[in-house]
Design a protein around this nucleic acid. Structure first.
Lengths: 243, 243
DNA sequence: CGCCATATTGAAATCATTCAACTTCGGTGG
DNA sequence: CCACCGAAGTTGAATGATTTCAATATGGCG
């Protein structure tokens, strides 16, 4: 039984031992779900949120026409399904892209966090704000960039997040097919293929199976039109809550 | 001096008089900002969040190439600038699309809310989750729908929100030019023009200046590929916090 | 080996942009 | 009151980006 990854939660502020212990205690046992299986399907009643312990997952919207838009990629330590806390039935489908292990937290536990652990609640709140920024970046990317830039932005975003959770710099080892990438980027798999090959030929990336090697980080960052982000760490107003 | 609109805050749960009074007391005095002026520019230090008391505003990302993606429309009662709570400097530019009046709340006040008014904190948290769903819907719309559907989705979204804050059904009276709509929809103003005229000719909408009349709501909803949303109201886990 | 999912490629079609007028509308100053 | 002006809306034609369709290649795995 693996430990609960807490990088996301402590990204903005250190938490005291009590808060961390409470957080751990609120999650249920580990559950394995195999590749390409839904963790929760859109329309299901909202009874819990999830913590991704291991593996890759995505949140997506399935449209009436049968198309799918992937709205968020998840790596270990991410909380899944929180947006649907505002709804009666889930707005998004959660899918494991690899075999995944998750734990779930019942809604009543969220109430306890706000009541008993305000610092922890505030950390979850800031994390939700960060997710909004990620979504806004994706939106700016789909709305205002051609396919090549969209791909560069995505690759750099994932790369920087992976580095943040301690993975090797310069490599993005994700489990996505070109069809998956199309659902993330708002393109067709055919076009994703052409884009990737073009970046490969220009020497900006190399490919080994589904792994992408970022051979020219500087050029990729020039392609992306988004700034690197400076996240807060230990702001006064957050520290103040614990006093 | 107008009252502080609280529809957004009480959308998910009633709040007691103390919480409401605290919330009101944390905002500074009203400030007027004129049309097309920045309320806060991306890159500015994050020292506060804002409450929009009157008028229309937008949050947007300005890209290096000079293009702009509007990521969120704001109506009275909306909290502005909260996503940048996760950052040192603001990620989004906030702009008034009409003359607006705003009030601002310092960061320290957010700390107090989490410490002293957990129900209020939880309401802000759920509101942030709702905003994530709105963003995910916009993302699905830009990523997977042609221009006409994007427009229908946007129009219905704004319509339903306006009805929610008590405006007339079947009318969207917004202050946007076709160039603004292009920045929202990820299109050019020329194409927005063609789309609107096409919907007009098909009898789905009528136009009077910048006002749009939704002449055929049912047909518009058929065009949109997104479901109507059922937001929670007064869930147990939230009520429980107040006890 | 044979099978299935995935990746690759070319050609034609579609959607949206660009560019360049031209029109309409509301306000403002003479 | 009217002429003018700038901002916003409208339109057509050419261009460009991406999709669609259809076929072929590759690669891992039982």
């Amino acid at each position: 039984m693996s430990d609960i990854p807490m990088q996301r939660l402590t990204e903005f502020a250190g938490l005291n031992a009590n808060d961390l212990a409470l957080f751990r205690s609120l999650f249920g046992p580990e559950k394995r779900i195999s590749r390409r299986r839904d963790i929760r399907t859109q329309g299901d009643p909202v009874q819990e949120i999830f913590l991704l312990s291991s593996g890759w997952a995505v949140s997506c919207f399935d449209l009436r026409g049968g198309e799918r838009q992937i709205v968020k990629l998840h790596t270990p330590g991410d909380v899944l399904g929180a947006p649907s806390l505002a709804m009666e039935t889930a707005a998004e489908t959660l899918v494991g892209m690899t075999d995944v292990t998750i734990r779930s937290m019942p809604l009543s536990a969220i109430g306890r966090i706000f009541k008993e652990a305000p610092s922890l609640a505030a950390s979850l709140f800031i994390s939700a704000q960060q997710e909004r920024i990620f979504l806004m970046e994706r939106l700016a990317s789909l709305g205002r960039m051609p396919a090549i830039k969209r791909f560069a932005v995505l690759l750099l975003h994932v790369h920087d997040r992976l580095v943040h959770i301690g993975r090797e710099c310069g490599v993005v080892d994700w489990p996505f097919t070109q069809a998956d990438l199309a659902d993330i980027l708002g393109l067709t798999s055919v076009h994703v293929n052409r884009i990737m090959r073009s970046l490969d030929q220009q020497g900006l990336i190399k490919r080994r199976g589904s792994t992408v090697i970022l051979s020219d980080l500087a050029a990729l960052r020039r392609l992306s039109e988004l700034p690197e982000r400076q996240w807060i760490h230990g702001p006064d107003w957050l520290a103040q809550i614990a006093l």
